[in-house]
Amino acid sequence: MDRGKISKWLKYPEKMGHKYSLWAIYFATGCGIMEIPPVLTSRWDAERFGVLPAATPRQANLFLITGYVSVKTLRPIVRTYELMREPKYTVGFGSCPINGGMYWDSYNTIKRVDKYIPIDGWIAGCMPRPESIFIAVTKLWMMIDKGAATGYIRYRENYRYYRENQERILGKLDWPPLYPEKMGEDNG
């Protein structure tokens, strides 16, 4: 272990723990998934950065949304995000989750995923290089250090806003609210 970081480990053990044990779950919505295998395997080796693939959303805390999100895939994305345990971090990958990208006028593609689930960071590009995933990971470390990666808190605080937007697109959702106590009050 890096000796210079010992004081940091003693001062903020939970932050350091979150930083260096990012377990990624990636949603293969679109073309971005092609960048994930070389990132995780020997070519770029994400384990150098403490990022490993997780088997289920329950064991993951980093959610990569790789590629465009169609209306049909928004439902499992919301489902997956709600299954993950806190603290959880989301990264939108590629230009399509940011603003629709080349599908900006498509009838079946979600524009701006952050209206439906909170996103901590974006990686721009079509497609982004695998290196940019590591830049995003190091940025995420800085954000966790500063306490700025607060997507999951935002989701809890504004749960009614997010749930209403999800139901506006998907119709009535067939699972109960994650934070039922937030559904009654007006937080807008």
């Binding site: 900006w104 006028d105 498509s106 009838y107 079946n108 979600i110 524009k111 701006r112 952050d114 209206k115 909170p118 935002r154 504004n158 806003y161 937007n165 506006r168 697109i169 807008g188």
Partner: peptide
Amino acid sequence: PFRKDFDIREYVKRTFDVIPSLEEKQ
């Protein structure tokens, strides 16, 4: 949606663009 009298831009405006972002809402 593939019929020629279906206006895609109008549909996108009506469905996706009217949803306010969190900052706009707050």
